[in-house]
Design a binder for these strands. Structure first.
Lengths: 333, 333
DNA sequence: TCCCATAATTAAAACGCTTTAATATGGCTA
DNA sequence: TAGCCATATTAAAGCGTTTTAATTATGGGA
């Protein structure tokens, strides 16, 4: 039914060892033999059985990507970019999504280990203090991993992420220059690194400048409704700016402010984060901070490929990726 | 290093055949032995090598999902739902995205075949008239497939999708009842089934009601900018409604109308499709048609699982899934 | 006690590839 | 001409399971 290596060997008049070596481009095999074998294989439509290949070579040729939420536009972009990055390699990408559940994340990682991925790229739901168990499992199994969209300097894991702290600082500087003095940050759950970083930048900045009355709100969720509902009922006295950890939330804030008959940016400025489509479709274009997701994907994938291929991974790939402020009308006063 | 079946067999005091059969729940093995083996395996942390398993049983235990664009919220939802649906099965889902390129789609399908998926779920970029080549390949390889979010009655392929035609008809009926008589439909490229269906419903409806001056525009893309730019420059005389094939485009239309100092819905009504987040975050909540993506994913996955498991697939799963109109303010006059 | 049917277990043959150590070939040198 | 060496090829031993046919218990009836 299916053509296998023995068929190719027979037709090409060589041994299966030669076919295998030739097809894998082994230099030991005479170049003319290699070409001949390749031609015969192609003619016969030979496709090596991946399971057999994996078993014999003890490599799964698979890399896992664990996402918190594939329906989040940001992670979807990460998935697409990673897919593209690995497409030309001989590694397949196995994508999974935990729906923001730590428990699910653990199960997924466990399944990935069971499925013998050679490496794992993890965009963690939370700072993995109590996830360490699965890191142990990864270490025990000798599976290289890299955190994406997260960074844990204190835990010394390989991480690639954008400089959220720096991005927030830059944004604040620009807003400060525009005269904003009392701002609120609508953030996500505490102890989630990507929020903690921006919370920290916010508080540090306010402390540096001696700004009073600035405040961080930790919302339960980071969707449109979460910020909309919150802004609808929050105390706004004296506030001249609302920052959000993503653009969709910023849009929620804008719409809630409008519902309260407040104008953006005249009465109050609003800024988002990520430079996603939401910042551009807003009735008032939203000032935001651009994250270079593509570059993040490329760095993480390159690092991962180095690891699984046994090359010395380039530490350059683990460097923080700078963010860039995009000023738009929502903060022009 | 890694514990394998021989280790378990030795420790349990049985043969590897017994271990294999026991672990796979074969009734031939005494229930006590099964339990004993299971206990030993668990204690030793035994995880069968998936490659060996796949090779020996000649099953890859993998199902592929080919998407046109994973960054599109609609397909991302489909991916998540499918992932969830297969999670409890013993099949892994391999997700890939073609970035709306037919060529890429072909390559992906080819790679999936090479990777020996047992079944394929395809959300095709275009009506597969010239894709038939890869369908041949699938048939030759005996790989069952099902189209999702697409339906080709004339080609007689298994398909699961929402009733886009019916949904559009329902929407038009509601709008007609509200007095709309001259409408424009902003659609996507021709010969893409999911657009063709709605275009057809639109034209059929207009013909039935004898509406003059209704018109379908085939835009190059179906993103925000595509509709925004189009509406910015299109002739609006006498038009009382603009329909779009998704909510993001409807939002683009609304914003473009606003830029032209036209009010929605007072001056002109706007409707979208999908009932996505965009219809709710709009300054004017958008009337739309809800597609039950989850149900579509469940149906497709169930059908696929039946196929790969060798069960007779339930034709019920291939039935058109009804759509539901969501009336919102953008069409209230 | 013996036999036989039945239940439970196992030996051994795949599965289709990789990889290593060994073999064959054919100059070239001494 | 024998001996070497470099190059090219191959035999054969895995890799860790599943699966089938064969073997070995088990126990109830004659």
């Amino acid at each position: 039914m299916h053509v296998k290596i023995t068929d190719v060997a027979e037709k090409a008049g060589v041994s299966i060892a030669t076919v295998s070596l030739a097809l894998n481009g082994n230099e030991k095999i005479n170049i003319r033999t290699r070409r001949h074998v390749a031609a015969v294989a192609k003619e016969m439509g030979y496709r090596p059985n991946p399971s057999a290949k994996r078993l014999a070579s003890r490599k799964s040729r698979q890399i896992g990507l664990v996402l918190p939420d594939i329906e989040n536009i940001y992670y979807a972009a990460l998935a697409q970019d990673t897919l593209n990055e690995l497409r030309m390699s001989d590694y397949a990408l196995i994508i999974s999504s935990s729906m923001n559940s730590r428990q699910m994340e653990r199960r997924i990682v466990s399944d990935m280990i069971g499925n013998q991925v050679e490496g794992l790229m993890i965009a963690p739901v939370e700072k993995p203090n109590d996830n360490i168990e699965y890191l142990d499992a990864l270490n025990d199994a000798g599976i290289p991993y890299v955190f994406v969209t997260a960074s844990y300097p204190d835990l010394e894991h390989p991480c690639v992420m954008c400089d959220l702290y720096g991005g927030m600082k830059q944004l604040l500087t620009r807003l400060y220059d525009r005269g904003l003095r009392r701002m609120a940050l609508l953030s996500g759950a505490q102890n989630v690194h990507c929020f903690d970083l921006r919370d920290g930048a916010f508080m540090d900045f306010c402390a540096e400048k001696g700004l009073e009355g600035c405040r961080v709100y930790h919302l339960d969720g980071i969707r449109y409704d979460d910020s909309f509902n919150h802004v609808q009922s929050m105390a706004l006295e004296g506030l001249d700016g609302i920052l959000c950890v993503n653009d969709m939330m910023a849009l929620g804030a804008i719409n809630a402010l409008k519902a309260r008959s407040l104008r953006v940016p005249e009465d109050i400025a609003v800024a988002g984060y990520d430079d996603s489509i939401f910042s551009r479709i807003s009735p008032v274009p939203i000032t935001t901070v651009r994250q270079d997701v593509r570059r993040m994907a490329v760095s993480a994938a390159s690092w991962m490929l180095d690891c699984v291929r046994g090359n010395a991974p380039d530490p350059e790939n683990l460097r923080l990726i700078p963010c860039e402020v995009q000023l738009r009308r929502s903060t022009e006063r």
